[in-house]
Structure formats: C-alpha cells, structure tokens
C-alpha cells in the first residue's frame, strides 16, 4: 500500500471512531492503534491478575465466614476480569503465551498499586474502597471505548466492580465504628493506601504521554488529573461519614471550584515503584511466575489427557 493510501485509510478510520462506530477485530486498523491497544489492554489484564495477590493474602484469615465468602468472590471476579481482558486482547493478534511472557519478564507493566503490601485486615477494606474505587473511575469511561471487544469486556467488568467497592467500604465502616484498636487499624490502612490510590490514576497531565492520541481513540475520555479530582471529591465525604481522616494536611474544600484542593503527590515514589523498586514488586513477580511454572505439569497433563480422549473417540468411530 502506498503512503497516500494508508493516510486515506487512516482518515476514514478516525472518522468512523469520531462517529462513535466501533472497530471490530477483523476491520482494518492502523498499526499504531493495534499496538497501543495491545499494550493498554494487556496491562489492564495483568493488573487484574496481579491484583489478586494482595487480597488473596487474607482469604484464609478473614475474620468471619461472611467476610471470607465476599473476599473469595471478589478475588475470583478479578481472575474473571483478567480472563475477559486477555481474550479481548488476543483478538488483536497476540497470543496468551506472549502476553504472559511479557508480564513474567517485566517487559509489560501492571498497575503500580499492587506493589504495596497488605499488612492488616483493614487493608482489605482500604483496597476495596479506594483501589477498586479508583479503578471504577478509570474503567467506566472505557465502556464506550472504540475497540468493540475492549468495550464489551469493560461493560462486564464495571457491572461486577460495584460490589467490590461496597464490601471494602463496609469493612472500613465496621472497623471505624469498632474498638479504639479497630479504628486505629482502619485509620492506619487509609494512611497507607490514600496516596498510592491517587497515584494509581496516573501521572499528572503535564507528564503524561500518549494522552492526545488516546483521547481520539476513546481509550481515554478524561485526563488523569480530572479523574483524580473526581476520585478525591467523591471519597473525602465518605471518609468523613465514617469518622476517618484523609492523611493530607493541605486538603480543603474550595468553594469557588466546588472541589477539594489537595497536597503535593510524591511522584518520585510513584516512578520508583513503576521502575520496579516498590516494596512488593519482586515478591509479586515471584508469586506470579512461580504459579505459572508450578502449574506447567497440570497444563501438560490436561492436554495429554484431552489428546488421548480424542484418539479414543476417533478409534471408536472407525
């Protein structure tokens, strides 16, 4: 194809998206669209999968059966989200094995928030309330994204997320209304998870690459800073409601903006964690790669069994 032809195809492609038409797997698409989607969607899938680890840590120690079934169901949902997203990404021509390989070798990233440790039961509350809360804010606009399989996966994901956030908030609320020790535990969890949750919504607009192109392709509908402000404005009153304090001395209501002003985010910490130097990066990857490698014999055995069954069926048919 000549460059002129490609430019014309690209123009038509952009116009289709501007008209709110969806792009489906076998449609022509610019190489950059394919690559950008593979990157964003696979990283999203990886985040769901790695995101099971910090919460999986507490399933066996949940304080009651009610909490245990809820946490178990939530973690299972996250596995489901990862699987919806991996299969949606495969429609762009990358294999599941390639994606795993990228995750396991550190070539692909996942959300930096999962590189923080979950050291008390209250962290299950903070993660559900704040981390899933921030994830919802990120994900809802993606239900309208231009790539059909991604948009459909996100609709499913978003339907399932709201219970995640509610069960987290309920844990926090119970602890905040409990004994002084329990309240301290809840406050401590909020102190540790607040700033990483703000960072989770991505670098500040001035430093964010890809934004303009992503807006055009509806991979992004609002800027990181707008999403962050939305998250803060919705979360602060929830903290007040249960008597917890947001760990930011500069946080205050701005009457003029009808929004909260907030303190400086430690972006150094964010980039350190992204680059692999967070408290749990190595631990998470070790757990993930270990699960994959230790499961190899099970995958092989299942395949061998399936082939044997198939052969038997064919013999019977003769």
């Amino acid at each position: 194809m000549s460059e002129e032809q490609i430019r014309s195809l690209e123009r038509q492609f952009d116009e289709r998206i501007a008209r709110d038409e969806k792009i489906e797997p076998k449609d022509w698409m610019p190489e950059k669209y394919r690559k950008t989607h593979i990157r964003q969607m696979s990283q999203h899938a990886h985040s769901e999968i790695v995101g099971m680890l910090p919460e999986g840590n507490w399933i066996s120690r949940a304080p009651s059966l009610r909490r245990k079934v809820a946490l178990l169901a939530k973690v299972q949902d996250e596995a489901g989200h990862g699987l919806y997203l991996y299969s949606a990404t495969e429609t762009l021509g990358i294999s599941r094995e390639e994606m795993y390989e990228q995750l396991h070798t550190g070539k692909a990233k996942y959300s930096s928030i999962f590189n923080y440790p979950t050291i008390s039961w209250a962290d299950m509350g903070a993660v559900g309330w704040l981390v899933d809360g921030a994830a919802i804010i990120n994900q809802v606009p993606l239900c309208n994204t231009s790539y059909g399989p991604y948009a459909r996966a996100m609709i499913r994901v978003c339907k399932e997320e709201s219970f995640h956030q509610r069960q987290g908030f309920e844990i926090m609320m119970k602890l905040a209304n409990g004994s002084p020790e329990q309240k301290d535990m809840a406050q401590d969890a909020l102190n540790r998870w607040w700033w990483p949750s703000l960072m989770m919504l991505g670098p500040t607009d001035a430093e964010s690459i890809h934004t303009e192109q992503s807006m055009k392709w509806k991979l992004k509908r609002k800027s990181n800073d707008d999403l962050r402000q939305q998250f803060i404005d919705q979360t602060v009153p929830q903290a007040e409601l249960i008597g917890l304090t947001i760990p930011d001395p500069d946080l205050k209501w701005n009457e003029e903006r009808q929004s909260y002003d907030f303190g400086e985010i430690n972006w150094d910490e964010f980039w350190q964690v992204v680059k692999g130097h967070g408290p749990m990066n190595k631990h998470r990857m070790k757990a993930r790669v270990g699960a994959w490698e230790e499961g190899a014999w099970v995958r092989d055995a299942a395949m061998a069994h399936a082939e044997k069954k198939q052969e038997r069926k064919q013999k019977e048919a003769v």
């Binding site: 699987l83 919806y84 299969s87 949606a88 996966a153 995958r299 069994h305």
Partner: peptide, 8 residues
C-alpha cells in the same frame, strides 16, 4: 460473550 482457553 467471549472466549477462553481449555484443553478440551
């Protein structure tokens, strides 16, 4: 509604 991997 989507796809998945399985041995059989």
């Amino acid at each position: 509604c989507g796809s998945l991997h399985a041995a059989d």
